[in-house]
């Protein structure tokens, strides 16, 4: 579905540091990536590795410390100003908890109409028609117009949030764990809905999730982050079937399997808990890595680009023939 031509968005060296009394929290540290038209780019990685922070800088909800942004091949600009000028109205977001992102005192109709009124100035019949149209796009009908949020299920609420996000016809939707608060059958419905909306409207998605099954289903490419940096990226099927970076392998090994025969066999990452305040010397993953060699503890691995849109930052990438090793603690 990816459209050829310059990428919708090209981010270079995005950095966000939070100064604190105990030192600098390097939440995002020099992240570069591009999002193409009509594609879904997924971001996965350890809790606290900077995924939401990165999304918030693109949404203009927090200022990036540094970095540049180029839109459809335009001259790169500092991120914060590009977000305010060029991206305005072209990017919208859906978050994890529809319960807390939607005003409980407003009816569905008012919730969806709000951005149409304030940003587009639609009124009366036009406003109502467009509201109904948006709700229909997400699979909801006129019978929901008068409902308050507490009368709707989690999946329906998330549909309302998606309808609101689509109101200004954005080109890019940032989805920060949009399905993790939903139960599995509604997750499946929501993922299918997102796929349909993408092909109907040619949307690009930045999809942040811990659910690797959902990522595998919806995304074209994936970036794996660890401690504020990108450690691997590529086509989803390639990355998940043949991970190159040991952290990606650890993630895949930790997916809890539904198969009861295999329970109790999932690998546990051991070693020091990573800290964005106190990044290890050399490779950030080295204190926990089972492929570590001397160089890993002194030098930071650069990014290796290996054909097919694939890149990784590791001195000892996993070979294709690598078989799950057993020197990990298992439960």
């Amino acid at each position: 579905m990816t459209v050829p031509g310059p990428p919708l968005l090209k981010v270079c060296n995005l950095t966000k540091h939070y100064p604190t009394r105990r030192g600098l929290v390097r939440a995002v540290d020099g992240l570069s990536f591009e999002i193409r038209r009509g594609e879904t780019l997924a971001i996965v990685g350890e809790s606290g590795c900077g995924k939401s922070t990165m999304a918030m800088t693109l949404l203009g909800l927090t200022n990036a410390t540094s970095g540049s942004l180029s839109i459809e091949g335009s001259v790169p600009q500092p991120i914060s100003s590009a977000v305010r000028t060029q991206m305005h109205g072209n990017i919208a977001a859906v978050f994890q908890n529809p319960q807390s992102s939607l005003n409980p005192k407003m009816r569905v109709e008012a919730l969806v109409a709000e951005p149409l009124k304030t940003a587009l100035g639609l009124r009366s019949i036009e406003l109502r028609n467009r509201t109904i149209e948006l709700l229909a796009d997400v699979g909801m009908g006129e019978q929901h117009l008068r409902a308050f949020p507490h009368k709707l299920s989690g999946g329906q609420l998330q549909r309302v949030a998606i309808a609101r996000a689509l109101a200004l016809k954005p080109q890019l939707l940032v989805l920060d764990e949009p399905t993790s608060a939903l139960d599995v059958s509604i997750q499946a419905q929501t993922l299918m809905l997102l796929k349909r909306l993408q092909s109907d409207f040619g949307l690009s998605y930045l999809f942040i999730s811990h659910d690797l099954g959902a990522v595998d289903f919806i995304a074209d490419r994936v970036i794996v982050m660890y401690l504020g940096k990108q450690v691997e990226s590529g086509n989803v099927a390639d990355v998940f079937s043949k991970p190159k970076h040991p952290y990606t392998q650890a993630l895949i090994d930790a997916i809890p399997t539904i198969n009861p025969e295999k329970r109790g066999h999932f690998a546990l990452l051991t070693g020091e808990i990573p800290s964005p305040l106190n990044r290890p010397v050399g490779c950030s993953f080295s204190p926990r890595c089972r492929h570590r060699t001397d160089v890993c503890c002194s030098t930071e691995p650069g990014v290796t680009i290996s054909g097919d849109d694939r890149s990784f930052a590791c001195f000892n990438p996993i070979q294709d023939t690598f078989v799950k090793s057993s020197n990990h603690e298992t439960i």
Binding site: G45, E46, Q96, H210, L251, A254, P256, L268, L269, I331
Partner: peptide
């Protein structure tokens, strides 16, 4: 009540192991 929905799978695995 849904205590691991916001955790990545490696941290979730550690929490599971802790609770077990």
């Amino acid at each position: 009540d849904e205590p691991t929905t916001a955790l990545d799978v490696t941290v979730q695995a550690q929490i599971i192991s802790l609770v077990r």
